[in-house]
Amino acid sequence: MTVGADIKQCLATIKSIEAGLSSLAINTNAEDEQQLYHEQMMVIEEIKQDLMKRIGEVEREEEQYKGF
């Protein structure tokens, strides 16, 4: 697998973590837990943004990695 594909796979996992945290936050009844999940979701969101930026760079540098 190419580097680009690896990073994209990682991005997909990050997205699934974010979604998982989001669903936990919705489903839980405890407020402090809800808040915790939300906070961690923000952190994951930041990581996601960074990864997406990096994917953009990789795609610009190496044309062959382009595409989803």
Binding site: V3, Q9, C10, T13, I14, V43, E46, I47, L51, K53
Partner: peptide, 30 residues
Amino acid sequence: KKCQADLELFALATESEKAKRLYAANAKKL
């Protein structure tokens, strides 16, 4: 855990200094 390991791996594999820092920082965050 998987993602965290992946990020660390990317940090080791990449040659770009900037990307290395980015991966390392995110691995730490995760």
